[in-house]
Design a binder for these strands. Structure first.
Lengths: 221, 221
DNA sequence: AGCTTTGGATTGTTTGACAATCCTATGATG
DNA sequence: CATCATAGGATTGTCAAACAATCCAAAGCT
């Protein structure tokens, strides 16, 4: 086994930090990212900044306009709706595959993650909820056994997060969300692919609806 | 309307040329892409080459290993199979959406593209087939009205092309392929989403099977 | 007010440099 | 002779400095 730990070059760190800053909303959608300033903030050279930005462009978190430079991606509702459409398809498939293929250890781990999520909901621990959700999804996508689905959904989730920062949605949706995720996991535990797919569909559908109302509220506000 | 023509910077051209070189098989999968040499070949500086490579990395056509540099992505059969799984889902959806939403003009254009494809098959014009296929897909993805599906499928097609160059597959499959595509278009013309989805599924399934045998032949050869 | 010009800010691209890392071939050693 | 260590070259990772091209906004002109 290869346990080497890569010295994690300057660029990778820069990409991570910038990604975090974007999805956390520290850089707002539409905001321009001036290269010189990023050099200052990150303490690295312009060449490295530019390469880091190209990577984030690949993840669709940054859009680089010729002769105007990079800015944080702005997500229209139309685009977001299309992303939800794709999520419906792929998360449904991922759940069905996980129901078919997940090992006992993976089921157990998902159970733990969902437990942590439910606990975080009970204690209203926002950061805990986010972490537990991410973990739950990571496990499910790993269990589904399709690396391409994993990769695509990871990207779509990141993009949908671009909405969140602005709309600060779903304060009250957490309990429902927990129930929906519980339904997915139950189906996986019972090795019922069709039920798992259906539960995942409902979950995405609910998230989409919630985002839509949050978006509408924001629009008028 | 904005008809401005961008002076198309050095980098974009470099990306295009490299992409072409990769999908055409001029650079073989696994081959290392030494920066200095690309500088020579493209006649541009190292910085620009590196940014171009980062973009191609985002398209998954190039994989950059730390301290080893970039090389053309190698596609295992396992990965290819996963891509076909996703294509089944998304192309099916795209076809169904196109059946629902395509305008008369779009239907007509697809008809023309498919006609060109059939003609190219009849005259055994390999380049014409490729061009017509690409056009047919472009039109269908445009007609489906979901830019996210479009974007993802575009990437997956490019990745699958990485197999083609090696396996030089499907010399005889073109006529069947034409029939399958005709089935898709017929369903779209009749505005029958379910039928269109099914036809698209069959098409991807057939392409997957063909790739599999081509892969197996190559393995023993 | 509306148009033009000008100047500053920012990006696009190049060149040159150097440390860190990897790979290979050479040489040392048992 | 086989194996291990070492040295050297090749390649990448990163930086710094420079300059032309482009864009944007504000000042100036009519």
């Amino acid at each position: 086994m290869d346990l080497r730990v890569t010295p994690q070059g300057v660029q990778s760190q820069a990409v991570d930090k910038l990604r975090e800053a974007i999805v956390s909303g520290h850089f707002q959608p539409g905001q321009r990212l001036v290269e010189a300033e990023l050099c200052r903030l990150l303490g690295i050279s312009r060449g490295s900044v530019r390469e880091a930005l190209r990577r984030l462009e690949g993840e669709r978190l940054v859009v680089i306009t010729p002769n105007r430079g990079p800015s944080v991606t702005e997500l229209s509702w139309e685009e977001a709706a299309q992303i939800y459409d794709v999520r419906r398809l792929l998360e449904g498939e991922a759940a069905a595959l996980a129901a078919r293929r997940a090992t006992a250890a993976q089921r157990e781990a998902m159970e733990a993650a969902l437990g942590a999520f439910e606990a975080a909901v009970a204690t209203e621990d926002a950061l805990g909820r986010i972490a537990a959700t991410a973990r739950f999804y990571d496990l499910m996508l790993a269990a589904c056994g399709n690396a391409v689905i994993d990769e695509i959904l990871r990207g779509l989730h990141a993009r949908i997060n671009l909405l969140r920062s602005r709309s600060m949605s779903r304060q009250g949706r957490a309990p429902e969300s927990a129930r929906e995720m519980r339904a997915i996991l139950s189906a996986i535990q019972e090795r019922a692919p069709a039920a798992a797919r259906k539960a995942a569909l409902l979950h995405v559908e609910a998230a989409c609806a919630a985002a839509k109302v949050a978006m509408a509220e924001r629009r008028v506000a």
